[in-house]
Structure formats: C-alpha cells, structure tokens
Deep mutational scan, measured.
Amino acid sequence: GTVKVQGITIKVPNPDKAYKIAKKLAKKYNLTVTRKGNTIKVE
C-alpha cells in the first residue's frame, strides 16, 4: 500500500500497521487520516 503525507507518498507493506501509525501521528499533529484500501492519506 501507500501512505500519503502532505503530498509525499510512501509505499508500505502493511497498510493496517501503517494506518495505526498514521492515526497516532495525525492525533499528535492534528491531521486527518483517510484510508482507501492500501492507500493511506494524511492531510
């Protein structure tokens, strides 16, 4: 899958794990995490 952070896309082998990490970071930096299948977008 991929993770998008402010325009940066990161390929990740485990979208579930990445999503959990993204959620933690999002809370810390007051961002929104959206997930569509293997693509995770943080904005």
Rank of each mutant, 00 (worst) to 15 (best):
G1D: 05
G1W: 13
G1K: 05
G1M: 11
G1V: 10
T2A: 07
T2E: 12
T2S: 07
T2H: 09
V3I: 11
V3H: 06
V3R: 06
V3F: 03
V3C: 15
K4E: 14
K4H: 13
K4Y: 12
V5R: 07
V5F: 14
V5G: 05
V5T: 06
V5C: 15
V5N: 05
Q6S: 11
Q6C: 15
Q6I: 12
Q6R: 14
Q6Y: 13
Q6L: 15
G7V: 10
G7H: 10
G7A: 08
G7P: 05
G7W: 09
I8C: 15
I8W: 07
I8S: 03
T9N: 06
T9Q: 06
T9D: 07
T9C: 15
T9L: 10
T9W: 09
I10K: 03
I10D: 01
I10S: 01
I10Y: 06
I10M: 05
I10A: 03
I10P: 01
I10F: 06
K11A: 10
K11D: 08
K11P: 09
K11S: 12
V12H: 06
V12R: 02
V12Y: 06
V12P: 05
V12Q: 02
P13N: 13
P13E: 09
P13F: 11
P13T: 13
P13I: 12
P13W: 14
P13D: 13
N14T: 04
N14S: 09
N14K: 02
N14P: 14
N14Y: 07
P15W: 14
P15R: 07
P15F: 14
P15K: 07
P15D: 03
P15T: 12
P15N: 06
D16Y: 08
D16E: 09
D16H: 07
D16V: 06
D16G: 08
D16M: 08
D16P: 01
D16A: 06
D16N: 09
K17S: 12
K17I: 14
K17Y: 14
K17C: 15
K17F: 14
A18D: 02
A18L: 12
A18R: 01
A18F: 14
Y19K: 07
Y19C: 13
Y19S: 05
Y19G: 02
Y19T: 03
K20W: 12
K20M: 13
K20S: 09
K20V: 11
K20Y: 10
I21R: 03
I21E: 06
I21H: 03
A22T: 02
A22R: 01
A22F: 14
A22M: 14
A22L: 15
A22Y: 09
A22I: 15
A22G: 04
A22V: 13
K23Q: 12
K23C: 15
K23H: 05
K23W: 03
K23D: 03
K23S: 08
K23A: 08
K24M: 12
K24H: 11
K24P: 00
K24D: 07
K24V: 09
K24W: 14
L25P: 00
L25S: 00
L25K: 01
L25N: 00
L25V: 04
L25W: 12
L25D: 00
A26K: 05
A26P: 00
A26V: 08
A26S: 06
A26T: 03
A26H: 01
A26W: 06
A26E: 09
A26N: 00
K27S: 07
K27L: 09
K27N: 09
K27Y: 11
K27Q: 10
K28L: 14
K28Q: 10
K28V: 12
K28Y: 15
K28D: 08
K28F: 14
K28H: 10
K28M: 12
K28G: 04
Y29G: 05
Y29N: 04
Y29S: 03
Y29A: 04
Y29I: 07
Y29Q: 02
Y29L: 11
Y29M: 07
N30T: 01
N30G: 13
N30W: 11
N30A: 04
N30F: 12
N30Q: 08
N30C: 15
N30E: 05
N30Y: 09
L31H: 06
L31R: 01
L31D: 02
L31M: 08
L31Q: 02
L31N: 04
L31V: 11
L31K: 05
T32N: 09
T32V: 13
T32P: 00
T32I: 14
T32W: 05
T32C: 10
T32H: 08
T32M: 08
V33K: 00
V33N: 00
V33T: 01
V33S: 00
V33H: 00
V33I: 09
T34E: 05
T34V: 08
T34S: 08
T34M: 04
T34G: 02
T34D: 02
T34C: 14
T34I: 10
R35C: 07
R35K: 09
R35M: 06
R35V: 09
R35F: 03
K36L: 11
K36M: 13
K36A: 10
K36W: 07
K36I: 14
K36S: 11
K36G: 02
K36C: 13
G37A: 04
G37N: 04
G37W: 00
G37D: 05
G37P: 00
G37K: 03
G37Y: 00
G37V: 01
N38K: 04
N38I: 05
N38G: 06
N38F: 01
N38C: 14
N38T: 05
N38W: 03
N38M: 04
T39G: 02
T39S: 09
T39P: 01
T39I: 12
T39Q: 09
T39F: 09
I40S: 00
I40F: 06
I40Q: 01
I40D: 01
I40E: 01
I40C: 10
K41T: 15
K41P: 00
K41S: 12
K41W: 15
K41R: 10
K41L: 15
K41N: 11
V42W: 03
V42A: 02
V42E: 00
V42R: 01
V42P: 00
V42D: 00
V42F: 13
E43D: 06
E43W: 11
E43M: 10
E43N: 06
E43C: 15
E43F: 13
